[in-house]
Computed example of a mutant assay.
Amino acid sequence: MWKIDNTPPRTYEAPGFSEPGVTGLFYDGPSWQGKPTRVFAWLGMPAQSTQASGGKVPGIVLVHGGGGSAFSRWVRLWNERGFAAIAMDTCGHTPDSGSRRRDHHALGGPPGWGVYEKSLEAPMEQWGYHAVEAILRGHSLLRAQPGVDEKCIGLTGISWGGVLTGIAAGHDPRFAFAMSVYGCGFLDRSPGLGLDKTDKPHAEKWMELWDPSRHLKDAKMPFFWINGTNDFAFTPEIWQESHRLLRARSGKKTLSFKLRMPHGHGAAGESPEELRLFAASHCFGEPPLARLKKQERQGRMIRAEFDTKVPLKTAELLFTKDDGIPWPQRNWQAQPVLLSGNLASSAIPLGTVACYLNVTDTRGCVVSSEIEFFEHGTR
């Protein structure tokens, strides 16, 4: 459905959209309802080049979540981290700018997000196609910027942007790494996005076309997943299943499943240090995050061994005994556990229905084991 084209899309000025340190612009999108479209984006470069290779800087493509738009502050954040960055709007909008209201502009493509009721229409007329196309074209545009290292450009998205990240990563092998914040696949089982309440023909077709579970198997780049135990939409079971789709094909993949991590843009989804370090380890040679090497459970004991270049400081067992209620409402508890070098281990409390191990390194970065589920709780 999508074809990768290294030729950058044509760009246009965006009068009235000006922010410090970044450039507002439009670029060509695919046609919609027989008419041309344009995508709004903020584009920014580091103020002082942080040399990754040959005097060039790495880059990152930023995909906003539901209710969001292209965020200039997000571009500047990654510029401060040493990355060229582009943040595009995936719903045909122009962004907030001061008191300016976010509007669907005259050449905008289909509005989002999800848009399940349109799933029986021609795929290339739907939001899912246009949103991913905006990402791929934005990537081509960023690669074409002078001074950008096209071999080290990553992709990250928040919430619905994480959903789109899962799709785009399966179709654009040019990305050096990908990072999904909250978003995952198997959305017909999500309690917070409404697909489970959509009529069967539309829901099934949407899953066939746009669910990341149909696309992640083809993602081969290193992948980082970060989420919270009580997320309203991306629950532990579907999040872990999405991660496991990458098992045979993706190189290095890393989980960070935080206790009650809040959901949103801003500090919650944009600022975790784990995101910066995962990207910097691939582009600047910084020590990578720890990564799960081996995990085993024997009876009521769980153990996880991690590969790490940075000493691990603490380990915790996170567990919930709540059963029969929606995942977002379950009470998760955390307790310190034995950490011996790179090996964390713990007894599992009686009555536990799900648990996993977290380790924290000396930089304060959290990495997780996979989640163990118990159908009737541990006995």
Rank of each mutant, 00 (worst) to 15 (best):
N79D: 10
P110D: 11
S180D: 04
L77A: 12
V148I: 10
G108M: 02
G98Y: 00
L141D: 14
L142N: 07
R101S: 00
E125V: 10
G154T: 07
T90E: 12
D103N: 14
D89W: 05
R73A: 13
W74Y: 15
R76D: 09
D103F: 05
Y116D: 05
H139W: 11
G154D: 08
L164Y: 03
C152E: 05
R143T: 11
C152K: 10
P110V: 04
H171S: 12
G92K: 00
R137N: 08
G128Y: 03
D89R: 03
Q145Y: 02
R81P: 05
I167W: 00
S140I: 11
V115D: 15
S180E: 11
G114N: 09
A178F: 01
Q126V: 13
A176E: 06
F83K: 03
A106F: 07
M124F: 07
F177E: 09
R101G: 00
P110L: 06
C91T: 13
H139N: 12
G157V: 07
T90R: 01
H104N: 13
H104K: 10
S119Y: 02
A169Y: 01
R100E: 09
G147A: 06
D172Q: 10
P173E: 14
M88R: 09
S99K: 14
S159D: 07
A169P: 03
W113S: 15
D96G: 04
G147K: 02
G147L: 03
G128S: 11
E133K: 09
F177P: 00
S99L: 14
T94Y: 01
E117F: 07
F83P: 04
T90H: 08
R76Y: 05
I135W: 03
F177K: 07
I158Q: 14
Y182N: 09
W160P: 02
L141C: 11
A144V: 12
F71I: 15
G166Q: 06
L142Y: 06
G108C: 02
I86G: 07
E117N: 15
C152A: 12
A168P: 05
H130I: 01
D172S: 13
L142S: 10
